[in-house]
């Protein structure tokens, strides 16, 4: 039972990551390879605040969100003005830098040893400690992230994002400041990813830099693409599939070392298969079109 709850908590955390990344990849059509870095920023800000200053969970959560949003602006401002390729490279660089800082600034982050003993959330006296409590909290936060993202994409702002994805020149010819839209959505996306980081840190109670590598970014991108870019529910479904599927491998009885390799092969093959035969993902952008039109 605990095992099942554990998987569900992971699905919640990865849903937050994939839904927030979908804002960029699926709706705006720009690729960030730094999503794991923002995830890590959230995790480390919350962990360090809790461990060093014993500050309350809600404050740590807010600071994690703000820190990721500000870092998003710092990367976005110089890189989003130019071509999208530069943005991809800038996010790649940021991903590498964040990992090296976490790994090498030993006096502050404990480097590869990681940070153990991260306290569990205490929300105005309400302690979150059992699996079920964590599941409820992560589900609420995932629902909040989904709600915010949905609001963003369904608004006129979101319509401009789609226009930017399809044809920047057209959008610009109708007065849309492409850079401003991209920067805002990138900051939101980064800030929301930090929420997943805070949850991960307080749930596992131990973090080290290996959880926030470029492989993790690529994993989140895979969830978005396999689930269906441009559809928020697709990102949730993608998270369910990609988090649960490898767990099934365990029941096949593969030794752990082999299973880890098989996982990588599995993600890779799934990604290739989807790119070739179903580029729109499990559910494409217009899966719910009928309903939304009737509203």
């Amino acid at each position: 039972m605990e095992y099942l709850l554990h998987i569900l908590i992971y699905i919640g955390i990865y849903s937050i990551l994939s839904v927030s990344l979908n804002l960029l990849v699926g709706y705006t059509g720009i690729l960030s390879i730094a999503h794991a870095a923002f995830y890590g920023v959230g995790a480390y800000v919350a962990a360090l605040m809790a461990l060093k200053l014993h500050s309350p969970f809600i404050l740590n959560l807010l600071l994690g969100i703000i820190a990721a949003g500000i870092l998003g602006a710092l990367i976005g401002i110089p890189s989003l003005r130019i071509k999208d390729d530069y943005f991809v490279i800038a996010t790649f660089a940021f991903q590498v830098i964040v990992f090296s800082v976490l790994n090498n600034w030993v006096s502050f982050t404990s480097g590869p040893m990681g940070l153990p003993g991260i306290p569990q959330p205490d929300i105005f006296g309400l302690k979150i400690s059992s699996h079920i409590e964590f599941l409820i909290l992560v589900t609420l936060l995932a629902a909040l992230v989904f709600w915010i993202s949905n609001r963003v994409v369904k608004s006129p702002f979101g319509r401009v994002l789609k226009a930017i994805r399809e044809d920047e020149v057209f959008a610009q010819s109708f007065g849309k400041n492409i850079f401003a839209f991209k920067l805002k959505v990138f900051m939101i996306s980064a800030a929301l990813a930090a929420i997943a980081g805070v949850m991960y840190a307080t749930y596992i109670s131990f973090i080290d830099p290996t959880s926030f590598t470029i492989m993790e970014s690529i994993f989140i991108i895979s969830i978005v693409i396999i689930g269906g870019a441009g559809n928020l529910w697709g990102s949730v479904i993608g998270a369910v599939v990609l988090v649960a599927l490898p767990e099934l491998l365990r029941f096949v009885g593969l030794p752990n070392a082999v299973a880890a390799n098989i996982r990588q092969i599995l993600y890779g093959s799934l990604l290739v298969i989807f790119m070739m035969w179903r580029p729109q993902g499990f559910i494409g952008e217009y899966f719910f079109k009928q309903e939304s039109e009737n509203q």
């Binding site: 609001r151 963003v152 608004s155 006129p156 702002f157 319509r159 401009v160 789609k162 226009a163 399809e166 044809d167 020149v169 057209f170 959008a171 010819s173 109708f174 007065g175 849309k176 805002k184 939101i188 952008e285």
Partner: peptide, 27 residues
């Protein structure tokens, strides 16, 4: 040029000037 993967109506809606809903905070 047009935004081909959105509805005809949405193409028109996109093109109105000074839309409060294009400011993220207003949403």
């Amino acid at each position: 040029r047009l935004i081909r993967q959105i509805r005809v109506l949405d193409n028109i809606l996109l093109c109105f000037r000074d839309q409060p809903g294009e400011k993220l905070r207003n949403t």
